[in-house]
Design a protein around this nucleic acid. Structure first.
Length: 968
RNA sequence: GCGCAAGUGGCGGAACUGGCAGACGCGCCAGGUUUAGGUCCUGGUUCCUUCGGGUGUGCGGGUUCGAGUCCCGCCUUGCGCACCA
């Protein structure tokens, strides 16, 4: 029998933790009242005079491997923040659901031969157990799952809202801007009423069924387009641009991706490019993430200019340029190899007059040269094109164009440094002011005309891309000479527009969002096709379109290198499901349709889950508007750092998650949110007002002599004679590195092990105490014991380890401890409010240690305050101690301790006396000492006297803490 | 190549607007408790030192009475972008 049966061991911690988790669940402790909807509880809402707070974690994906110790970091942080805010009297909504559709689950299911629903649900069960054991204060009623028909019914509903919308760039918005999504029905009304003429002028009612559909489909925010897409044979599906890595491989699975022209569904996110870029000013996000989104959107301002072509009539080559001011320096043109005009430019027969040898690529005719170059370019992936470095290659097309500003004949080249996917796929080349064009000009002996005067000392063998006065830039009608870049741009655009040669223009790097996947495990499209191939949304009252339980859910995958394979969705194999009789409610009665066999990408479910959290049981709307306005509506004040005059867009109060979703999820969700806002479904204009990018926990991983990872748990550590650490695995030396926790580095550490060895509270405290939340930090299981010691001391300050009796005393706190207590309260409040949990823990540790050293037991006042302050971090032990201290209600809604400002300053402070900036002496002085008095006191000190024997040059006094004496 | 972060003890990290560098924790050292080990408790722990002090926040300069903090130039690491016209 142990002498300390009431010691706070991992075992006791476990008992306490599970008991409180049960109690919280039974009592619905963390259920946040809603103002409206099926769970309307206005009285409950009114009980929170402190207002409301919506705290959100990134939607977790239930992986088959279970959680590792890196996963809970953000969940713990938001839980601490949420619990702290509950104690401030706020109505806090915090919950967690599961993003459970998607590729990994499907891949896993295919591998194991089990249905993805089965494996997914098993994974959710495991993860839910692991998370529950952490003691997160989640509203358990709101744990939604994307794979549930009650959920994806609304995913499909949102899809239909977007499908049935068009973007009206002229429409005014409530926020004063122009451009917003409107229901397609309004477009129909405009056509029908004549407010908007049809392209050929016929009346709407005279158009055929298919003609009308074509007109509307061209305007919808979801469109089926024939476009160059990313085809991934290894996954058997097409992918969005955002899902393809820089190396031209799939984000998931790392398979090769090929460019293919295919007809596919896209969401017209490009219509929102400006707003997605501009509204970043209105949210509080890490600047890094805002920059990533801005780069991805890639907005650039410039002009479109048309160059007439020698050969054919009309057409001409349209280029986009950000430097229209340099038009006079355009000495040649370049088209992307895929550019459709290339063929029309190539003359029959041999090389035209003026062709230089370097331009021909050694071919006998332009046709041969161009065909050869295009074939070679087509055979390369984007990655291969880039791998070849910056060396410029290309061939002359044999065609000539005319520079519209000076009539100069300029040769037209094809070169793969111009990309078909950006701008118009054609450029005017201005070697003097563009490095790439300079390189090309140098390689192909093309002329260079400087049109911006470089500064003194500029290397004449390079392009000059900076600002400066224009030169060589005048014709009979317009002169830019002497103007700076900005003014020159403005003037030339004015002239181009007046002459009908071009116009100011904006282009974006952002492409429309390819939305369909030829896989099984996702939301089916709520779309059917009629006998004319026209797409119709499934009527709302017939949602959800349930994912059928097909016998063969494996996607048709191919050799990953087989670029010419074709996507084949698994749903297409279920002929019974594909063919359906429906009444669309359009007065034509039930008819036979063919279902769309694509499924939505994984992002679909995670684009709006935070909205469903607000009202998960609502079957009349995706969220009751009053609930959305309450939890997410705009706040009176804009976020910190927003430009003057900014209106708050609303959104989640705190969103915590990894930065890996900086462009994908965060951009898609903003897009959907804005569409729903435009259509009047949401009061908020942004989903995430404040986003905090957390760091990762890294764990040691070990490689053997061959560079292979070995199981980290089997590695032995040694210290050699020099005190250096060495590591061995099975006797053989291995080397250590730190990396992402997971199977591939064989360095998995499970929270389950931490629960067993220390308890959840210790684990929580350790993760929060490691360092700043935004930083990546190494995991060290051996150091966890420090957090356990803290809780053991806390426990011992309240409970006798031998008898289990209460140890606190009902004597008043001494003055010094009172001041320590109040200073701790003050510091901890500041730290909790700014997610500074590591420093909060340091302060609590100091207080705890101070109480430990008190003679004669810990006064109740201090013990209770400490328990309350520890509660957000280590809620179970805090609840247990609170109960043992005689309280019969949970401390979750207890007011957080308040510091008395009068107790934050001491009566006396230690003043530092410096001589020439070096600390030489200290004096105890009253904290309200006057400057002059302090100066006298300092100058009278023997050490100062000694140092200033030769006189005093100056004395700096910063009462009451510092005096710096500078001897002459 | 361009852009953005960050470099502080053996380790993770503290340090508000320039004002006692190293809070708190791990590890390590010493002492106490214990038959012993572990636990727990107390103290110590930048480096050098002739024990007076000197030195010290990636490197080199600068501003200042005073610099981890501000300025200039480098180095290293991490992240993002990378022919985007």
């Amino acid at each position: 029998m142990s002498e300390t049966p009431y010691r706070y061991t991992a075992e006791l911690a476990g008992q306490i933790e599970v008991a409180w988790q049960d109690r919280w669940e039974e009592q619905g402790t963390f259920r946040a009242p809603n103002p409206a909807g099926p769970w309307a509880d206005p009285a409950g809402v009114a009980e929170h005079p402190g207002g409301h707070l919506l705290v959100l974690d990134m939607f977790p994906y239930p992986s088959g491997a279970g959680l590792h110790v890196g996963h809970p970091l953000g969940y713990i942080a938001t839980d601490v923040y949420a619990r702290y805010n509950r104690m401030l009297g706020r109505n806090v909504l915090h919950c967690l659901g599961y993003d459970a559709f998607g590729l990994p689950a499907e891949q896993y299911a295919v591998q194991t031969g089990q249905h993805p629903r089965k494996t997914t649900e098993e994974n959710i069960t495991i993860m839910a157990r692991q998370l529950r054991r952490l003691g997160l204060g989640h509203d358990d009623r709101r744990a939604i799952r994307t794979i549930d028909p009650d959920y994806y019914r609304w995913t499909q509903w949102i899809f239909l809202q977007i499908f049935d919308s068009w973007y009206d760039p002229e429409a005014e918005r409530a926020d004063g801007g122009t451009g917003r999504a409107r229901p397609i029905a309004e477009l129909v009304e405009e056509y029908r009423g004549g407010a908007r003429p049809t392209p050929d002028g016929r009346a709407w009612d005279d158009l055929s069924h298919t003609e009308r559909a074509a007109l509307l489909d061209a305007r919808r925010l979801v469109q089926s387009v024939e476009a160059e897409v990313n085809w991934c044979p290894g996954l058997g599906t097409v992918l969005a641009n955002e899902e393809v890595t820089n190396e031209g491989r799939s984000d998931r699975g790392n398979y090769p991706v090929f460019k293919r022209n295919l007809r596919q569904w896209v969401m017209r996110i490009t219509e929102y490019a400006d707003r997605l870029a501009d509204d970043l000013d209105r949210v509080e996000w890490p600047e890094k993430v805002k920059t990533m989104q801005r780069n991805w959107i890639g907005r650039s301002q410039g002009a479109r200019v048309t160059f007439a072509v020698d050969a054919g009539e009309g057409a001409g080559i349209e280029v986009f340029t950000t430097r229209p001011d340099t038009l006079f320096g355009a000495t040649f043109m370049v088209l992307a190899p895929e550019h459709p005009l290339v063929e029309t430019l190539v003359p029959e027969g041999g090389w035209p007059e003026g062709t230089k040898d370097a331009w021909t690529g050694g071919a006998a005719t332009p046709a041969e040269a161009v065909a050869g170059y295009r074939a070679a370019a087509a055979a390369k992936t984007d990655a291969e094109r880039q791998d070849e470095g910056k060396a410029k290659t290309g061939v002359f097309t044999g065609g000539w164009a005319v520079n519209p500003v000076n009539g100069a004949r300029v040769p037209v080249f094809v070169a793969d440094y111009v990309l078909m996917g950006y701008g118009t796929g054609a450029i005017m080349a201005v070697p003097a002011q563009d490095e790439r064009d300079w390189d090309f000009a140098a390689a192909y002996a093309l002329p260079v005309v400087r049109t911006v005067r470089p500064p003194e000392g500029h290397d004449e063998s390079t392009a000059y891309t900076g600002d400066g006065p224009a030169m060589n830039s005048a014709n009979d009608e317009v002169s830019l000479d002497g103007l700076g870049v900005a003014e020159a741009k403005e003037r030339i655009i004015g002239w181009l527009e007046a002459e009908g040669l071009g116009e100011g223009a904006v282009t974006y790097k952002l492409r429309d969002w390819l939305f369909a996947r030829q896989r099984y495990w996702g939301e089916p499209f709520p779309v059917v096709f009629d006998e004319d191939g026209i797409a119709h949304g499934v009527p709302e009252d017939q949602l959800p379109v349930e994912l059928p339980d097909v016998p063969d859910y494996s996607p048709k995958v191919y050799d990953p290198q087989d670029a010419h394979s074709e996507p084949e969705p698994p749903l297409a194999r279920d002929h019974e499901w594909v063919t359906v009789e429906l009444d669309l409610g359009d007065g034509r009665g039930p008819r036979t349709f063919r279902r769309d066999t694509n499924v939505m990408p994984q992002w679909a479910g995670s684009c709006w889950y935070y909205l469903r959290y607000l009202d998960p049981a609502n079957d009349a709307a995706l969220v009751d508007p009053e609930n959305e306005a309450y939890w997410m509506g705009p706040r009176p004040e804009p976020v910190a750092g927003a430009p003057a005059g900014t209106r708050d867009p609303g959104g989640v109060d705190l969103y915590v998650g990894g930065v890996e979703h900086a462009v994908l999820h965060l951009l898609y969700a903003r897009f959907w949110h804005k569409v729903l806002h435009d259509l009047g479904h949401l009061a908020s204009g942004e989903p995430f007002r404040t986003y905090f990018a957390q760091g990762y926990i890294q764990a040691p991983a070990y490689t053997d002599a061959r560079g292979q990872y070995v199981e980290a748990g089997e590695v032995e550590e040694h210290v050699d004679d020099d005190g250096r650490q060495t590591f061995t695995h099975g006797g053989a030396p291995v080397s250590r590195e730190f990396g992402k926790i997971g199977k591939s580095l064989k360095n998995m550490v499970s929270p389950d092990d931490m629960y067993a060895a220390f308890g959840a509270d210790t684990f929580r405290l350790y993760e929060m105490g490691l360092g700043p939340l935004e930083q990546s930090k190494p995991w060290d299981t051996r150091a966890v014991v420090g957090s356990q010691r803290f809780l053991q001391r806390l426990w011992r300050n309240v409970v006798d380890e031998e008898t289990g009796a209460l140890r606190v005393v009902d004597t008043p706190l001494d003055d010094a401890t009172t001041r320590v207590l109040h200073r701790t309260v003050d510091a901890v409040r500041t730290d909790f409010g700014s997610l500074g949990f590591n420093t909060a823990i340091a302060r609590l540790t100091e207080l705890n240690n101070a109480l430990t050293k008190l003679e004669g037991g810990v006064p109740r006042e201090a013990a209770e305050a400490l328990v309350l302050m520890v509660a957000p971090l280590a809620p179970h032990i805090a609840e247990e101690l609170w109960a043992r201290l005689g309280h019969d209600r949970s401390l979750v809604y207890q007011p957080f301790p308040v510091a008395d400002p009068g107790l934050l300053v001491d009566d006396t402070v230690t003043c530092v006396v410096q001589i020439k900036g070096k600390v030489r002496d200290r004096i105890e002085v009253p904290s309200d000492i006057a400057e002059d008095a302090l100066r006298e006191l300092a100058l009278a000190r023997p050490k100062v006297q000694e140092a200033t024997a030769g006189g005093v040059r100056t004395v700096i006094v910063r009462a009451p803490g510092l005096v710096n004496v500078v001897p002459a």
